[in-house]
């Protein structure tokens, strides 16, 4: 088993476990965590798909970087909505 295969396996497992959790969890925080783990799994697969002869393609690296930034933005939005639903009777 090469190193790449092991990381592909890790990425696949991350994505599948996160999907499972997403389908079964009710708790808002657990769902948000699952979405974040799913995204890391996808990023892992994207990087490995672009790995040929020991070099990782720069374009999927840029995709992954974009994905990370997009995800932190959406996570912040999700958390602020969740907090308002959970507590916010302030207005």
């Amino acid at each position: 088993m090469t190193s790449e295969t092991m990381y592909i396996l890790a990425g696949v497992l991350l994505a599948a476990l996160a999907m499972h959790r997403l389908c079964t969890a009710r708790d808002a925080l657990a769902r948000i965590l699952a979405l974040n783990v799913l995204s890391v799994g996808i990023a892992m697969l994207m990087l490995l798909a672009g790995r040929v002869a020991g070099v990782t393609d720069a374009v999927p690296q840029a995709f992954v970087l974009t994905g990370i930034v997009v995800l932190v933005a959406v996570t912040a939005a999700l958390l602020s909505l969740a907090e308002r639903i959970s507590g916010g009777d302030d207005d």
Binding site: A15, L22, R31, I32, L35, L38, S39, I42, L45, M46, A49, P60, F63, G67, V74, A77, L78, L81
Partner: peptide
């Protein structure tokens, strides 16, 4: 938003494949 994000991530997984 949660459904939409799940949808986009599935879409992104498709793009990765």
């Amino acid at each position: 938003l949660a459904a939409g994000l799940a949808g986009s991530l599935v879409f992104l997984l498709g793009v990765a494949l």
